[in-house]
Amino acid sequence: MNVILVLVGFSLVVALAGLIAFFWSVRTGQYDDPYGSSVRILFDDEKPNEPGTVVPCEKEDPTNQI
């Protein structure tokens, strides 16, 4: 019978980890803007110099140097 208690303990720990993960996601603001997150994931990663796009000017404005 005691093995049940051990398993229950394990299951509680796993569930607790889920709860902590949920707290973390709330705290980091993942539920604040559901629409924004839903589209952001669909944005393509940058593909530099894709044919057809205009290549940005190489000469940089010196005032914009960081």
């Binding site: 559901p34 924004g36 589209v39 960081i66």
Partner: peptide, 13 residues
């Protein structure tokens, strides 16, 4: 504008 390091949009607001 390379001077901008980072920008984040909160769409709902």
């Amino acid at each position: 504008q390379p001077g901008i390091m980072n920008s984040a949009v909160h769409f709902t607001k």
